[in-house]
């Protein structure tokens, strides 16, 4: 099995939703990965579309929340609508 690469599986649960990561599996090639993904992750109509991606092709950020990688967004409260004081009697805002 080790010589079958690992694929990450993404499912679109229904039309209108994004594909969401659901897990991984091993397969010899992408076509087999799709078939395995169907059998493994959609036995009860959980998806209308499947993506499989070789795990080795994914580049990921470090998961640590304290990572300075995400620091640039930390001090920019003015990007949120609640930063702005608007009187209550201004309608539709």
């Amino acid at each position: 099995m080790s010589d079958w690469p690992l694929y990450e599986v993404f499912l679109r649960g229904k039309r209108g939703l994004n594909h969401v990561h659901v897990g991984s599996l091993h397969a010899a090639d992408p076509q087999m990965a799709l078939h395995h993904a169907r059998d493994l992750y959609t036995r009860r109509n959980e998806g209308v579309s499947i993506w499989v991606v070789p795990a080795a092709d994914i580049t990921a950020s470090s998961p640590d929340e304290k990572d300075p990688f995400f620091a640039p967004a930390g001090d920019k409260v003015y990007r949120h609508p609640t930063f702005y004081d608007i009187p209550d009697d201004v309608p539709h805002m």
């Binding site: 099995m1 010589d3 079958w4």
Partner: peptide, 18 residues
């Protein structure tokens, strides 16, 4: 079966895992 699938994948897509 595992070996055959690997051989098939290697031959048909030029995909040689690991």
């Amino acid at each position: 079966v595992r070996e055959a699938a690997t051989a098939h994948a290697t031959k048909h897509s030029g995909f040689a895992p690991f």
